[in-house]
């Protein structure tokens, strides 16, 4: 439902909304903003993972063939091993599928992934900026309305005091 409200939102004159409506709108915007923040966090982690995988490929060169390595069997147990084939690696492409790629192909794969994730992050940042602008506008209107109400009350109190 929130997404349906989005496009119409800009056409609504904020000053015509009541205080409770404005507060609700602000809460909704806050929620959406925190969703964006979470998504950004998740994407950042993904970006880092792809980056790390790509970087570690730099260490695998044809010269490295036969080099001893420690293979993690579990998080805390390693067995010694030897690099048998330094020309290709097996890459996890998602949903349980793994593909054998040569080093350059794998590097390219991770580069593409990092680029894709970065693109998505930029998109979300733009959206987030727009939303927070709307949020600021809502906050301003809330402040104005609140002040107006306060003045009204003060005036009423002053009038009452004058009478008595």
């Amino acid at each position: 439902m929130a997404s349906q409200d989005g496009p119409q939102l800009q056409q609504v004159d904020l000053t015509k909304l009541s205080l409770p409506q404005l507060t609700q709108l602000r809460q909704q915007l806050d929620q959406e903003l925190s969703v964006f923040q979470e998504s950004l966090q998740t994407l950042k982690i993904a970006q880092q993972k792809f980056q790390d995988s790509g970087d570690s490929l730099e260490k695998i060169t044809p010269k490295a063939e036969g080099n001893p390595i420690l293979v993690p069997l579990t998080g805390s147990m390693y067995v010694p091993g030897r690099i048998a084939d330094a020309n290709s690696v097996i890459v996890d492409v998602g949903t349980g599928y793994f593909v054998q790629k040569d080093i350059d192909g794998a590097k390219d794969y991770f580069r593409r992934k990092v680029n894709y994730v970065t693109e998505q992050m930029e998109k979300i940042q733009v959206l987030g900026l727009e939303k927070s602008k709307i949020r600021d506008a809502v906050m301003d209107v809330v402040e104005i309305k609140f002040q107006a109400q306060l003045q009204l009350q003060e005036a009423a109190a002053a009038a009452a005091a004058e009478k008595s």
């Binding site: 097996i90 492409v93 998602g94 949903t95 349980g96 599928y97 793994f98 593909v99 054998q100 794969y109």
Partner: peptide, 17 residues
């Protein structure tokens, strides 16, 4: 995954976990 598989040359090694 499909895009990735489509990019592979025929005869490439694919594994399933």
């Amino acid at each position: 995954v499909k895009d990735e598989l489509d990019m592979l040359k025929p005869g490439a090694e694919v594994f399933k976990l």
